[in-house]
């Protein structure tokens, strides 16, 4: 079986353009803003069954547009997209039975009714009824930790609880494919971490769902995704594991906190430029260095200690979206062809 046949999702040269300004009068006059702007430009990728696949990119990169095409609420201008082997345009009704979407906007819930009723509605829309539906609703709410507050109005929930309600709503029919659009966008760091753990341990490992997740947080992508596609202005500029993407950016980045008195020695060993001055706090100075790869870390620490440098901290610096974007030349002027990583 080929990898494409086994794939949960495939996109082949998917292209989508929007008019920034839809005013009829301005469009009739042919104003500049009314001309179509490419939001997705020949996007091709494959998501394997059971994996968590990240769509990583800055705001406006085209992540949500891509998810909307997969969830059949948006039609591509060109190219083909399939979910479980079904075409999202010609077999949209069948596609909708195989996936569930967790939107970024919690306003998509019915705020005036309870979490149980919200989840029950979606269970009914997917064809469940009677006792089987009620059991599935309770199970979904229990799974996201809302089983005891299911009778409460969603409007009285915190953002985190609403996000969990959206997930319960998507999970109620146990769809094989889940689409999550920036699931931790409105959550505090602790709740976001809990939710990521839930996505990894429960949704993916326990339930075996294929998950496509859009995010502009590389931290989130690193923690969750098996693979990710980096989207820049509607184009996929890299698709790989996050570890490999990190390596492509240029080795492993570390932060070394040393005694301020030993700064010069440390800089020399780490091959850091001397003109970069970082302020000393509590007699310690922090230096950010890039190692060829993570394997070199113990060697560098040993060299620093042997040279008499007092090392207070030696820790990896997480890959940032900015690092990734810089590595693929996103700073280049608009219109310039981006090089593929």
């Amino acid at each position: 079986m080929s990898s494409t046949a086994a794939a949960a999702i495939t996109l082949c040269d998917v292209t989508k353009s929007f008019r920034a300004d839809r005013g009829l009068w301005r469009r009739w006059r042919g104003d500049a803003g009314t001309r179509p702007r490419a939001v997705l430009d020949a996007v091709s990728l494959t998501v394997q069954r059971g994996e968590i696949f990240g769509l990583v990119g800055a705001n406006g990169a085209g992540k949500t547009t891509l998810l909307k095409i997969l969830s059949t609420v948006l039609l591509p201008d060109a190219g083909t997209a399939t979910v479980d082997g079904l075409d999202v345009v010609t077999q949209a009704a069948l596609v909708r039975r195989r996936l569930a979407v967790v939107p970024a906007d919690e306003r998509a819930l019915f705020w005036r009714i309870s979490a149980t009723e919200n989840v029950r509605l979606f269970a009914s829309l997917y064809g469940l009824s009677g006792a089987a539906r009620d059991a599935a609703v309770q199970q979904a709410l229990d799974l996201v930790g809302l089983g005891s507050v299911g009778k409460q109005q969603v409007g009285s929930f915190s953002s985190g609880m609403r996000q969990r309600t959206l997930i319960a709503r998507a999970l109620v029919t146990r769809p094989p494919i889940l689409i999550l659009d920036e699931p931790t966008r409105s959550l505090d760091p602790v709740t976001a971490r809990e939710l990521r753990r839930f996505i990894r341990d429960v949704l993916c490992t326990q339930l075996g769902a294929t998950i496509v997740l859009a995010t502009h947080s590389t931290e989130e992508a690193l923690q969750l995704c098996d693979r990710a596609a980096l989207l820049v202005r509607g184009r996929v500029v890299a698709t790989d594991t996050l570890a490999r993407l990190q390596a492509a950016v240029g080795g492993a980045r570390v932060r070394v906190r040393v005694d301020a008195a030993h700064e010069a020695r440390a800089r020399a060993l780490l091959h850091l430029p001397v003109d970069v001055i970082s302020p000393a706090i509590d007699g310690l100075v922090a230096l950010d260095a890039t190692l060829p790869d993570a394997v070199h870390a113990p060697v560098v620490v040993e060299a620093l200690v042997r040279a008499g440098v007092r090392v207070a901290e030696f820790a990896p610096v997480p890959l940032t979206l900015a690092d990734l974007l810089e590595s693929v030349g996103v700073e280049s002027p608009p219109g310039e062809v981006l090089r593929h990583a």
């Binding site: 969830s71 059949t72 609420v73 909708r96 039975r97 996936l99 939107p103 998509a108 979606f122 829309l125």
Partner: peptide, 13 residues
């Protein structure tokens, strides 16, 4: 405005 329409249209209804 709320995104509910789009959400409901992602279901089999």
């Amino acid at each position: 405005t709320s995104g509910t329409l789009e959400q409901l249209l992602t279901t089999p209804i």
